[in-house]
Computed example of a mutant assay.
Amino acid sequence: MAKYYRKLKKQVLDLPINKRIIFISDIHGNYDLFSKLLKKIYFNSNDYLFLLGDIFEKGNNNLKTLRYVMELTKSSHVYPLMGNCDDIYFRDIVNIRSEEMFLNYALVKGHSVINEMAEELNIKITKDSNVKELCQIFTKEYSSIIDYLDTLPHLIETPYFRCVHAGIIDENDDNAYDLMHVADFLKTNKLFDKYIIVGHYPVINYQNQIPSFNPIIDKVKKIISIDGGNNVNPYGQLNALILESIESMNFYYEYLDDFPTINVKLTTNPNNENSINITHHDNQIEIIDKKEDYSVCKHLSSGKILNVFNSDIYFKNNHYHCHFGTDYQLKVNKNDKVSLLNKLKEFSLVKKDGIVGYIPNIFV
């Protein structure tokens, strides 16, 4: 995607030092999980809630989620900001960037707010649709949503932390593009004077050995990355980073995912020497032996041989890649409750405390 200009909008806040502060990012139209997560953490009117962008897109309830957030923000303690997916309104509807891109969202990607608007208005989008006319209709019929999104900041500044969707490259740049798009911000060499709290880049992509979807807190750089890969990674979760109070500066987190739970029958104690987690930017594989539900694959950059579910394999640019791949075996205890993510004849892929791995089926 070519870099475009979006004028930076900054919101400056002061906060009480004795209130609970919650950070959630990358809801991606998953209304059910978002509302359940708020209930799980007992969100209430005394809390301060920061939503770090990508409120919608990629989910099945994009408009419902957005309208719910609009309702929440009637409370003075809820502060959403703009993510790159939320910016679709201004890139592809208000300012038509590309008719081809618009139709790609509607006809190829799917799970888009564009599809939901068309469905609500009983409009069928085809490759021959008049995109300019459609955008004019959407802009008129959804003017209140567009006006609301136009108020969202790209950066929220407090005396104690800063919130952006993706990261900060140049603090003097008035273009908000990087704040919404920069990838792997945790790898920056910069040190900040107060915490920068971000989403956008699923944290599992920082993990080369153990597949963890949990928030990462870098106390040296003062960066906290919280995107749990909800609606992006096939086994992702929605994270809530919680600051007990500014007074304490004690962070912890809760999460939810969409998977069924099962109880573990026996304790495992696997040996995970030299385990691998295949990350998004290094996910090219070679299929050695394709079976009914999975394939024996070689990870090209590491040379490791591992099993990958066929549902997680895709073909792009003349090569095979995987959305997820690991040989990590999860340590579990008898009576643990785990999320069941996928299952083979002999092994199951499960998640415990935000960490994913295999366990033998005799244990579940």
Rank of each mutant, 00 (worst) to 15 (best):
V356R: 08
N318P: 01
G357T: 12
L340M: 08
I362K: 04
K334Y: 09
E346A: 10
K331N: 06
K337A: 14
K351P: 00
L340G: 10
L340T: 11
D327Q: 04
Y358C: 09
L340W: 12
F347S: 05
K351G: 13
K334P: 00
N317C: 05
N333L: 12
G357V: 14
V332M: 02
L341M: 07
G354L: 09
N333E: 04
V338K: 10
D336V: 14
G325K: 12
D327S: 02
V338L: 11
F363L: 07
N361C: 02
F324S: 14
K351N: 14
K351R: 13
H319C: 05
N318V: 05
K334N: 08
I359M: 14
V338P: 07
T326G: 02
D353H: 11
I362Y: 09
V350P: 09
L341N: 07
I359T: 10
L341W: 04
V356Q: 10
V332A: 00
N342W: 03
K331G: 01
V332S: 04
S348Q: 10
C322F: 10
V338N: 01
K334I: 00
N333K: 06
K331T: 00
N335D: 12
N335F: 02
L344M: 05
H321W: 06
V338S: 12
S348R: 06
D336S: 14
N318A: 02
Q329E: 11
P360Q: 06
L349D: 12
V332H: 00
D327Y: 10
D353Y: 08
F363Q: 05
Q329F: 13
Y320E: 03
D327R: 01
N318S: 13
L340A: 11
T326P: 11
Q329G: 03
N342H: 00
N317I: 05
K345E: 15
P360E: 05
K331W: 03
K331Y: 05
F363D: 07
S348I: 10
C322K: 00
K352E: 12
D336N: 07
V332Q: 05
G357K: 01
N335R: 02
I355Q: 00
Q329N: 14
Y328M: 01
H323Y: 13
I355P: 01
V356K: 05
S348F: 07
K351S: 12
N333F: 10
F324V: 13
I359S: 14
K337V: 15
F363W: 08
K334S: 00
I355G: 02
G325M: 13
H319Y: 04
Y328C: 01
